[in-house]
Design a protein around this nucleic acid. Sequence first.
DNA 1: ACTACAATCCTAACACTGTAAAGATAGTCT
DNA 2: AGACTATCTTTACAGTGTTAGGATTGTAGT
Lengths: 197, 197
Amino acid sequence: MDEQDHPPAGYHHGNLRQALLAAARELLEERGPGALGLREIARRVGVSAPSAYHHFASLDAIAASLAEQGFTEFAEQLEAAPTNAGGMLAPTGEAYIAFARANPALYRLMFGEGLRGASRESKAVRALRQRAYEKVKAGLRKRLPADEVPAAALFLWSLTHGLALLMIDGQVDAGADASALIRQVLKLSGTGLPSAG
Amino acid sequence: MDEQDHPPAGYHHGNLRQALLAAARELLEERGPGALGLREIARRVGVSAPSAYHHFASLDAIAASLAEQGFTEFAEQLEAAPTNAGGMLAPTGEAYIAFARANPALYRLMFGEGLRGASRESKAVRALRQRAYEKVKAGLRKRLPADEVPAAALFLWSLTHGLALLMIDGQVDAGADASALIRQVLKLSGTGLPSAG
DNA sequence: ACTACAATCCTAACACTGTAAAGATAGTCT
DNA sequence: AGACTATCTTTACAGTGTTAGGATTGTAGT
């Protein structure tokens, strides 16, 4: 039975779980959150569908696991954003949107799409979202009176989240230089809009 | 065969199509976009599943129809926003978010969740989204140089869309007076944030 | 009014899905 | 070696969206 040459060693198959997650992630980005299917995942790994139940409690658990994995990478990339330590917010925003654009389906999954029932309320996923959010707040506390922080953080997160989703959905025709447009939009979070209020 | 007392008159059943749409919409808000099921819809109307195919080409077509219906109501409520004609943008933003909060699942459906394949690319739905967007742009043109309008419009839309989704997902604990927080956040679109750029 | 017709609805069936139960197969430990 | 446990498989069940073909009803034509 040499169905694969990866040598990761392990038990029977050559540690499944991760193979399932890898296949799931490929499928996710190939065909979107709604097309995540347990049988298709197993098919790609070359294994029978129910065998997945030795490693995951359900398809939702696989999706939740992907979401967690996504949040981990997300946090890494946000913290690695250039001059993040310097106190500038825009570079973090750009990294945020870069991640979403590089992993569109994963990003949508992380924010609830394709998760049916249980894992939509998943404590793990929700906690991870909140942790990312707390980082933004911490950055703002250095520069704003405490009572303005919540609204300011929500403002920044809404703007970035919304822009990311609109771009992912192909709803904004960014043309050739998307990053220029992104920078332009994010910069408005500093200056504001004339007579918008 | 008196399975219902609604007298809407019509053909055989007493115009299905709309009954299906009504049931679909109830189901949608009750159990979310992912739980939209043709068989369940038919069940609620008291009719056999395949009969829906005389009125809709597929389940996706039902979902797309709901989305269209949603956009229509959406546009109405946005235009009815107080002092919209006066040129203020914030009231429109509040109406935007009010709609999303009143019809959370429908709002998500309108922006792509739960639509598999075809209708995600649906021209009708996409056109409706664009039309709503053009209205925002038109409002901005009166107050900004032309070359700043696209970024400004995208800025406003991203902020509002993102805030709406975060609130819908229960990701922001708005507490008792959500509208106060909403107003506070939207107001920041006018003033901007110190040293955010 | 009676007939032809077209629209509407139904039952039966297909290919698919997620999941449960029970049996085969390999690796591990004493 | 033998017992045991973890892993994977076949089989089966209830559910889904969708298609094909037959029954039923309302509409139009003469």
